[in-house]
């Protein structure tokens, strides 16, 4: 580890100025990802600007939804009564990630901006274009079980590891960002990016831009939503694949609106728009869901380790949507 200066920021503006003006400076949230990277020698900042104690840790109601501060801890967000009632996919995706201890430490922004768990990215002795642009990608032809099946490039085949990031993808979310020139908002879908020629950039944020909040709008699909995750052990493991889904049914039982996003599939949460468009206006049937998942995956590239992902996605997407469609206590209430 190189020498490190530590600064506890006292205001968002001060934090932005401290990082934007210094290419070697980084924001520090709960530290559960960045501190690990310091130890692994794969992050070598000169200065850490601690933003975890800024007044960004509130969940506040807005006219049409919720404003989630960037510093809200994952456990507090998952336990928030409005999140549990109106945005179950958010609570479920958070609770599917990491452990009780880590969720007490991890922040909203830190979770969304956590970096890939690709074993080569985390091993400074191997080539990795994300860690060291131009050095090559060891995951092509290497350990491939967690690799992407959609949207990858020759430069990078990894996936985004966050469960929360996938859950948010089915909500009408906006990310509030503070930069040296003031505040801007971006649709959530524009936060993360596909790797292309520049896998060193996970997101569209510029150096020194501070995420201050994520804003959510209430909607029937948000209210009737869920998250399912497939992993190699029952808990405390990253996703092989995961599915976030939201559903709204018309009075005649057909789908009036639907949202599906996949994790473990691409460099960013994958909004399954082919699936969504195909299912709108139709009765929800399991076989049909499986067929349209196959359509969404038409351009998928699999290798030995990822060969099972399409089948997992078909099964879990069908299960998530049929469970949401099944009449149950929450569903009746949502319809009232």
């Amino acid at each position: 580890m190189r020498e490190l200066a530590y600064v506890r920021a006292t205001s968002p503006d001060e934090a932005v100025a401290a990082v934007a003006g210094d290419p070697q400076a980084r924001f520090l949230g709960g530290g559960t990802n960045l501190v690990d990277h310091l130890k692994l020698g794969i992050a070598t900042p000169g200065t850490l600007v601690d933003v975890s104690r800024l007044a960004l840790a509130e969940v506040e109601g807005t006219a049409d939804g919720l404003r989630v501060g960037a510093g809200v801890r994952n456990s507090d967000l998952a336990a928030h009564p409005v999140v549990r009632r109106d945005f179950p996919v958010l609570a479920r995706s958070l609770l599917a990630g990491a452990s009780g201890q880590i969720r007490n430490q991890a922040t909203t922004a830190g979770n969304l901006l956590q970096r890939t768990r690709c074993v080569y990215f985390q091993d400074a002795s191997t080539p990795c274009n994300k860690r060291e642009p131009g050095s090559g990608c060891s995951a092509v032809g290497g350990h491939d079980r967690y690799n992407a099946v959609l949207g990858a490039s020759e430069a990078c085949v990894t996936v985004h590891p966050s469960d929360l990031a996938v859950g948010l993808a089915v909500l009408d979310a906006e990310v509030v960002v503070l930069g040296p020139d003031g505040e801007r908002r971006l649709p959530y879908d524009e936060l993360h990016r596909l790797p292309g020629h520049h896998p060193e950039h996970d997101t569209t944020l510029a150096h020194g831009e501070l995420v201050t909040a994520v804003e959510l709008r209430r909607s029937p699909v948000a209210r009737r939503s869920t998250y399912e995750k497939v992993r190699e052990r029952a808990s405390y493991a990253f996703a092989l694949v995961s599915v976030a889904a939201g559903l709204e049914l018309a009075d005649d039982g057909t789908v009036s609106d639907v949202r599906v996003a996949w994790g473990g599939v691409a460099h960013k949460p994958w909004r399954a728009r082919v699936v969504e468009d195909a299912l709108r206006g139709e009765p929800l049937e399991e076989e049909r869901v499986r067929d349209v998942v196959a359509e969404e995956l038409r351009d998928a590239t699999t290798t030995t380790g990822t060969a099972g992902k399409p089948a997992m996605l078909a099964g879990v997407t069908a299960r998530a949507l049929t469970r949401l469609a099944a009449p149950g206590p929450q569903v009746e209430e949502a319809g009232r």
Binding site: R8, G31, T32, V35, D36, S52, Q101, N104, Q105
Partner: peptide
């Protein structure tokens, strides 16, 4: 008061 991993946080923080 909350359970946390002491290996993933810096003492200065």
């Amino acid at each position: 008061g909350r359970r946390s991993l002491s290996c993933l946080t810096l003492a200065v923080a």
